[in-house]
Write a protein that binds this DNA or RNA. Sequence first.
RNA 1: GCUCUGGUGGUGGAAUAGGUAGACACGCGGGACUUAAAAUCCCGUGGACAGAAAUGUCCGUACGGGUUCGAUUCCCGUCCGGAGCACCA
Length: 921
Amino acid sequence: MEYNFKEIEARWQAYWAKNQTFKAEIDSSRPKYYVLDMFPYPSGAGLHVGHPLGYIASDIFSRYKRLCGFNVLHPMGYDAFGLPAEQYAIQTGQHPAVTTEKNIARYREQLDRIGFSYDWSREIRTCDPEYYKWTQWAFLKMFGSYYCNDSRKARPIEELVQAFETSGTAGVNAACGEEMSFTAAQWNAMSEKEKSDVLMNYRIAYQGETSVNWCPQLGTVLANDEVKEGYSVRGGFPVEQKKMTQWLLRVSAYAGRLLEDLEELDWTDSLKDMQRNWIGRSQGAEMVFKAYNGDQEYDMVIFTTRADTVFGVTFMVLAPESEWVEKLTAPEQKEAVEEYLAMARKKTERERLAETRKVTGVFSGSYAVNPLTGAKVPVWISEYVLAGYGTGAIMAVPAHDSRDYAFAKRFDLPIIPLIEGCDVSESSFDAKEGIMCNSGFLDGMTVKEAIPAAIDYVEQHGIGHRKINYRLRDAIFSRQRYWGEPFPVYYKDGIPQQMDPDCLPLRLPEIDEYKPTETGEPPLGRAKGWTIDGYPIEKSTMPGFAGSSAYYLRYMDPHNGNALVSREADEYWRNVDLYIGGTEHATGHLIYSRFWNKFLYDLGYVCEKEPFRKLINQGMIQGRSNFVYRIINTNTFVSVGLKDQYETTEIHVDVNIVSNDRLDIEAFRKWMPEFADAEFILENGEYVCGYGVEKMSKSMFNVVNPDMICDTYGADTLRLYEMFLGPLEQSKPWDTKGIDGVNRFLRRVWRMFYDRDGFIVTDAEASPEELKSLHKLIGKVQADIEAFSFNTAVSAFMIAVNELYELKCTKRSVLEPLVVLLSPFAPHIAEELWHALGHDESITYASFPEYVESYTVENTCTYAVSFNGKTRFTVELPADMPREEVDAHVRSMEQTAKYVGAGNIVKVIVVPGKIVNIVVK
RNA sequence: GCUCUGGUGGUGGAAUAGGUAGACACGCGGGACUUAAAAUCCCGUGGACAGAAAUGUCCGUACGGGUUCGAUUCCCGUCCGGAGCACCA
């Protein structure tokens, strides 16, 4: 009987679906394990072989955990709101919901063929009103909350209102946009609008005017992580800076906790590092410099991490957008300053990037006084100081900061070195080391001592205080697009009002065109009757990350109409034990999700403070492109080995008509009309193509489709091969050429059960050799799965099966555990063989075989090794080793042991005929 | 510029904690079975040198040093690739 994968795979996929084999239910008698994939955005192109890599890995782990007795939750869904469907809608007029639906169907079909053990009864889609109801709900909660810095928690905004009513801002320590100070009387005297504006300064979801990344081609605002090098990640359009009123999430309030709680997560160091970098904690001090514009005196606050360098301040710099600019511009400099500001404003993000290190600036005409030295220094304005960080103003110490140095050189400002022996004639001395000089009471201290000493001084004299700043900015939360969650907010006399939560979801209305309106409003401006009680509803929609921030919680209880997740489901499933996905979400989704979870945690809706306990980033599968070489101005192609003899152009050729780098010439002629009469210069009768590793994409003709692999080799082969390709976390090129090896392996497994005449498994007792092979495999596979080293696990299978095949093992007591071991990797064939062995239930309910170590013990004799006349340790050598060889080994060990000290010897490695190696503690 | 990664045969990659480098697989070469092909199976396959052969010797994990009885693995420096951040004071 032949291994008929097509029939087997179709049959078991149908069986699992029909019997709901992977349906997860709360079961307090068993430990839970939650395995999650980053859900896909269903694009029109469908899946290529790179996409399922992570899904296969998580599926293997899920199936393994089930065998180990865990109640596994392994769901899947779709991140279905997003720009591509909407762009497509603008071009074709087709409703994004229709394209999305179609793409999802295609994705599902492709996923189903690979044999994943998802509980599809829990499928979610972010564009489903029953789902986005809870996205809107969470938004309302954030709108109705502020962040208390004392308790480090989100609290209902009503508590803040109450505090304002009784004692104003006194005693309030809340995360906010700008520091405010008013009394209870002042608060109570405020108008509705004024109160609303004040509260906006504190709400966790708030409206604010900020400089945003504006993409004119997409007609929308983008978040920082949606912009790469001045271009939009989706579409690659240029992005510029623009001031706009937007909804924002006060993610920055959580910066400290987001940073600290990284410690307890089982994530890779590099990923944690990226997040740390993005959060960007820096410890320093805020200091007040008195600044004078004519007779007017102002307190100008700056932030620095190098308080020790205050004696070297020779000028101050303000960000162009800083509020101090207006106050500190002297009349005689007004014109120059305005000209500079206009120039800075006009620049796009792209231009600023292109001009990195080009030093620009203008003198404000005012001066500030150094609070420690009393020195009078000029106040400048320059782009290199960012308004959004710190206080938007700095003290410049050109001797010890390279940016200040460049500025000082450009505008000829003085440079005062503060560290003994440093040379600042060519460049600044930025390192935090050396002995201080020219610094009054700090002289003689090391920099490390001077920093805290300077801050202490500043605090004692009321000049400033310690301060921690974060780079993490609040997330801009509105998009001027159609295909996203509507905001459940309407405006009454310009004051935003929250919608009644009981009326959620607020459904996305139908519109007839998806472009922005003629007046520049978002597409929802076209919606008729987009009002609540006659008041206009917010016209922008939420960004992509809104729907993906809490989706893992919804999977726990996907059909609950009364809560995002019930307490019971939340307390059982808690959080994701294993999360697998790409590293591209390191500073986007993975920050927002953690923030969102912490917010819900503060309000008591979830019981875990972190959403993803362990996280693995699968590497990208790259394409392996093939090239042909056309001789210039001809239609003649030359084989790669001979191409240097001609002048050629390199042309991508479809990898699907190339096998082992040999071109299928007939297929090539049919591939494109222009090649129909192509001529070839061959080597050894073949046309050999060149190759290169690139991103897998249609334009490179290197896309390999998983359906095609399933058709010719089967899903089990695809799964095994994707794992065999290399370490999960590493990027590697796909090359279909090697797939025969794993296919051969599966056929060999099959032949251990079936020969030409039928089933050949016997109940005979297994030999020690067979058991040894089996148990070596059990130990290895278990260890490898736990370590996510799936490629070596597959190799171990091949070795074991080769051994057993050679031993002609057809014994049930060996083959049964073998099939169970194999089932996470190649579930279809395993299920088939499991049933052939006489089991009625799915192999999903089998138990992971128990590892017995004693089978691995070799046949050995024990010898004593001695030196200095005493037996120091014993060593086991193969019993059949000749006496002379044993003597040689023992002598050699005695030699080595003299060097090492016998007590340090842990293990002795003996190789027949070779020198002994000694493992030392 | 800063942070993180990685560099091993023709190819993808192995090598628990510093101990036989190149497992496993692809490809390639040779052979068996077959009328033939497919399938299957067996043998060889890092390099150089010596030998008729079994085999032996030397060199080899980007490069240069170091620690160690012993380094692909640890440390320092250099070169090259990949990723992230990028005027964050």
